[in-house]
Each structure stands twice: as structure tokens, then as C-alpha cells.
């Protein structure tokens, strides 16, 4: 399987070339175009993170209930995948450490990658963001999408990010939801809300823009339905 990212960084689209017998799982609606020979089916995914329960959990996590599976019966078939919003994509190779993905950033993964819903505890309940994150394990390729550009932060020690700007982070990192440094008053007046404080060593992926904030900014000016 070959995964190429085109049209980076503002409106990235992934061109996936599948060989005989290879398959890729994608969020419902992510397919832009594909070879007519590819077999497309929908699944609730069997095994870990699968079934009806897995699907419902994914939906709570801000993802679609169903996943699309694209399987290639012949060599050299092309599949184009893209998210809805303008922005970049990230091709992450799952290795030894698992990956925690912000709800909504998941786009696709190869079939040996497990997708589960991670409940990050009540600590994230007050962050104003989604309480649920996707907990990814196994090995293979993962495609993530962002609103705006993605930048990587190699965290060593401590790092603080606004909760709405996190795309994903490696599970070697511990995190807590906390107020920004300084007093509670300045945190409140500064408009930063709550932040994520990471500790440990690992890769953290951030996005330059925050989709819910954009939605609020535009949505509040649209006439009510």
C-alpha cells in the first residue's frame, strides 16, 4: 500500500494505492474518488473496538457510527480520501506506543490498527472539548486530519497546549487538564479556558485552528433555522 498526501498544506487529499488483497478502513464520508474495481463496504468493525457497541462508542467520540472498508481485488487501485474541512493531514505509522486522537481528527487506518474509545476521565469534562478521545493501538498506518495546519511538538518534559488545538499525541505522554499558568483570574480574563499539560517524552501533534471555535464564529451569524 502506498499513501501519498497531495495538495498540502491547506486542502490536503490522500491518494492511497492498494494492491491485491489490501484494505483500508476510513471514516464514513471520507471517500472523494476511487477506482471502480475497489470493493466498498461498511462495517461496525469486528473484534476490538468493533460491533454495535464499538460503533456507538465511536459515535459518542464524535466519529461516525459506521466505517467504510475499501478492499482491492486487483493490483494498483487508487482511492482518494479527504476530510470535510480545509486543512492538513498527517500520515502516522503506528509503532510501539499507542496514539490518542482527538475526536473528529480520525480519517482512516489500515486493518491491523485498533480503534477504541478512550474515556479520559472527568478531568476532561470541564475542558469544553469532547470528553472522549479515540484510543488507537496495534500497528499499521493511520491518517489524521486537522483544521488548519498540523505541527509536531517533540515533548520532552512538560508542554502546554490549548485543548481545542490537539490533534493527537503518543500514549507515552501523560496529560492533565488544568488552568493556564498564572492565577485563576488571569486564566479567566485571558480567554484561554482550560489547557492540556503534557508530561513525559513523546510526539504531540497540534492544529493551528479550532473547528468548534470557527463553527461558533460563523454559526452565530447565520439566521436561525
Amino acid at each position: 500500500m502506498k499513501i501519498e498526501l497531495l495538495q498540502q498544506p491547506d486542502s490536503t487529499i490522500a491518494r492511497v494505492t492498494l494492491n491485491t488483497g489490501e484494505e483500508i478502513v476510513a471514516e464514513a464520508g471520507a471517500m472523494v474518488a476511487m477506482s471502480g474495481y475497489l470493493q466498498a463496504s461498511t462495517t461496525l468493525r469486528q473484534g476490538k473496538g468493533g460491533g454495535i457497541f464499538g460503533g456507538l462508542k465511536r459515535m459518542i467520540g464524535g466519529e461516525s457510527l459506521f466505517l467504510s472498508v475499501f478492499r482491492s481485488p486487483t493490483p494498483e487501485n487508487t482511492l482518494f480520501l479527504a476530510p470535510k474541512m480545509l486543512g492538513d493531514m498527517l500520515h502516522y505509522k503506528m509503532g510501539a506506543s499507542g496514539l490518542v486522537v482527538q475526536a473528529g481528527s480520525y480519517l482512516a487506518s489500515t486493518s491491523d490498527v485498533n480503534i477504541d474509545l478512550g474515556f479520559q476521565g472527568f478531568k476532561s469534562l470541564f475542558s469544553g472539548e469532547s470528553i472522549f478521545w479515540l484510543d488507537m493501538g496495534g500497528h499499521g498506518d493511520v491518517l489524521l486530519s486537522s483544521f488548519g495546519a498540523i505541527y509536531e511538538v517533540p515533548v520532552k518534559g512538560e508542554y502546554i497546549v490549548d485543548t481545542g488545538h490537539i490533534v493527537a499525541f503518543e500514549k507515552t505522554l501523560k496529560f492533565e487538564i488544568t488552568k493556564p499558568p498564572g492565577s485563576w483570574l488571569s486564566a479567566f480574563l485571558g480567554g484561554e479556558g482550560l489547557v492540556c499539560r503534557f508530561k513525559g517524552n513523546g510526539r504531540l501533534f497540534c492544529q493551528t485552528h479550532n473547528a468548534p471555535a470557527f463553527g461558533q464564529a460563523v454559526g452565530s451569524r447565520l439566521p436561525p433555522r
Binding site: S11, T12, I13, A33, A82, K84, G215, L222, P224
Partner: peptide, 18 residues
Amino acid sequence: YLQSRSIDGLVQFLSSKV
């Protein structure tokens, strides 16, 4: 020629925010 995003996708996202 394919476009990598669609206006429908944006409209869908925004109409859920109204």
C-alpha cells in the same frame, strides 16, 4: 479534475452550528 473539498461539506458543518 477533482477538488479535494466540497462546499457541501462546509455547509453541512456550518449548518450544524446554527
